[in-house]
Amino acid sequence: MKEDVKYNDYLKELLEQLPKGAFLTVKDEDKLNTMTIGWGTIGFVWQKPVFVVMVRKSRYTYQLLESAKEFTVSIPLRKELKKELALCGTKSGRELDKFKEGNLTPEPGKVVNTPVIGECDLHYECRVIYQQSMEPALVAENIKKLAYPKGDYHVMYYGEIVACYVKE
């Protein structure tokens, strides 16, 4: 059963899990992919609850997100899903079906066309309301060295949270 919750009811749990990994999923027509994210944030912008995710232009997910303009974020709370997060963080959806390889279950979203990961407990469904490519000249030098030694910068996607729920 899926119980609707406010977008900020599980912020502590989200922020503790995010550095360990969460699933960012995108569906564009018949193409479906999920990837592991370890960075992101939730806030309130333009009078809307927003989940900001970052995706590099080199990622398969970027291609799908550019067309779909929606995404889901699924957070494992009760199970660690380390093996599944590792697979989705190291393999490309261009080459393999991560759902099949990782035994992950795509479950229909409540509002958006992109599914959530059935093995997770906390889910955010989002529609892109703004996106911004990072401007390399504006990134602090220590962050450039740490995260962008190859110059593969992120695009930041601001997704209005249109549904948030936990599985019981």
Results as ranks from 00 to 15, higher is better:
Ala137Trp: 10
Arg127Phe: 07
Val26Ser: 05
Phe51Gln: 03
Ile75Tyr: 03
Tyr7Ile: 03
Thr90Lys: 13
Tyr165Ile: 09
Asp4Ile: 15
Lys79Arg: 15
Tyr124His: 03
Lys20Pro: 00
Tyr148Met: 03
Ser92Ile: 05
Phe44Lys: 05
Thr25Lys: 09
Val166Thr: 15
Leu11Asp: 13
Asn33Gln: 10
Leu65Arg: 02
Val52Asp: 02
Gly118Lys: 07
Phe51His: 11
Asp152Ala: 09
Leu77Arg: 07
Gly102Thr: 01
Lys150Trp: 08
Leu81Met: 14
Tyr7Asn: 04
Val50Tyr: 12
Thr61Ser: 15
Phe23Val: 00
Lys145Met: 04
Ser67Thr: 03
Asn33Tyr: 11
Ala137Gln: 12
Val116Trp: 04
Arg56His: 03
Asn33Thr: 09
Gln63Trp: 06
Ser67Lys: 15
Lys57Phe: 01
Val162Pro: 05
Tyr60Asp: 02
Tyr157Asp: 00
Pro136Lys: 05
Met35Val: 07
His154Asp: 07
Ile117Lys: 07
Gly159Ala: 10
Pro49Cys: 10
Val45Glu: 08
Leu11Phe: 15
Lys82Gln: 08
Gly38Thr: 10
Val112Thr: 13
Glu29Asp: 12
Glu66His: 05
Pro108Ser: 13
Glu141His: 05
Val50Met: 13
Arg59Asn: 04
Val53Asp: 00
Thr34Glu: 09
Glu101His: 06
Gly102Gln: 06
Val155Met: 13
Ile42Cys: 12
Tyr153Cys: 01
Pro108Glu: 14
Lys110Ser: 02
Phe99Val: 04
Lys98Trp: 06
Lys20Trp: 01
Glu84Ala: 12
Tyr62Phe: 15
Glu107Val: 15
Glu135Phe: 07
Asn8Arg: 06
Ala147Gly: 00
Val128Lys: 08
Ile117Thr: 04
Ala86Met: 12
Val50Ser: 11
Ile143Val: 15
Tyr62Pro: 02
Lys98His: 05
Tyr157Arg: 07
Phe51Asp: 00
Lys27Ala: 05
Gly21Gln: 08
His154Ala: 03
Thr34Arg: 11
Tyr62Glu: 01
Phe99Ile: 05
Gly40Ile: 05
Val128Ile: 13
Thr105Trp: 12
Lys12Phe: 12
Arg56Tyr: 00
Arg59Val: 03
Trp46Glu: 06
Gly118Cys: 06
Leu138Asn: 09
Ala68Lys: 02
Lys144Asn: 02
Lys6Pro: 02
Asn142Asp: 13
Gln47Glu: 13
Glu119Tyr: 08
Pro19Ala: 11
Gly109Met: 12
Lys2Leu: 11
Lys145Gly: 00
Phe99Gly: 02
Asn142His: 14
His123Asp: 01
Val26Gly: 03
Ser67Glu: 14
Cys88Ile: 08
Glu13Thr: 10
Lys20Gln: 14
Asp97Pro: 08
Pro149Thr: 04
Glu66Val: 02
Tyr165Cys: 06
Asp9Gly: 04
Thr114Gln: 11
Gly93Met: 03
Pro76Ala: 13
Met35Ile: 12
Arg59Leu: 07
Asn142Glu: 14
